[in-house]
Amino acid sequence: MTKLLNRNEIAWRVAHDIPDGSYVNLGVGMPLAVVNFMPDDRDIVFHSENGLLGMRNLKPGEEPDPELVNAGKRPVRMLPGGAFFHHADSFLMIRGGHLDFAVLGAYEVAENGDLANWRLPDSKGAPAVGGAMDLVYGAKKILVMCEHNSKDGAPKIVKETKLPLTGRDCVSKVFTDIAVIERTGDGMIVREIIDGMSFNELQDRTGAKLRLANDWKPLVTPDLPVEEMTPRAMRPKQPTPQPIGKNANG
């Protein structure tokens, strides 16, 4: 049976697509894993919407600092050369076209580059958008990473999406557990397919019309563990029972 890529393997593939010298924002959720797999010989500056450039995930055993977190509220560390800045400047970087790439998750990507990734129509809870709508029109290129099909088998790359949109005509490339697909003015072009899967099978699992690139390649990654490698978000501790408004000096 064909082995689908796990999330770390998709993240590895995305990481290896990002050229040396790039400034990159990673969306919360699945894309946060990309930082774990950057090739050592590339200077990639990761931007975090909460005001960081030059962050990396904590090394195993490294003490988390509640004052140093990424967009997913997970503890991170700074590289030498990193910088802090406030939210208006951070989103100026995003919205003003200063970032080379943003990597985002998706519920659906449409043939015309529309992206839906913030809300499902049947969601019960409160809506939450974060910085996704800023990123889709801000970064020079939007890379999407997601499973190719949902749990019930429905394709995530579709002809047209009816879901609430995050942005129109914004996706450049989609990395899934079975293929790498580039969106061009000329339609959806398949660049890579995992070993053991035919183009016809890939097309059957996809809602949008695909074309196979003449120079397509097998989609190959190292075998990586399934487990999430990014440290979890810190949760609030119980407040210490002290009178509110107590002066620091006594």
Binding site: A88, F91, A126, V129, G130, G131, A132, D134
Partner: peptide
């Protein structure tokens, strides 16, 4: 938040993060 929102006791305006920063 979730308790108040679900019981209709809190009005919510969702704004993209950069739009909040820029509006302020």
């Amino acid at each position: 938040f979730e308790e108040l929102y679900e019981s209709g006791k809190l009005e919510l305006e969702i704004v993209p993060q950069g739009t909040i920063a820029e509006r302020v």
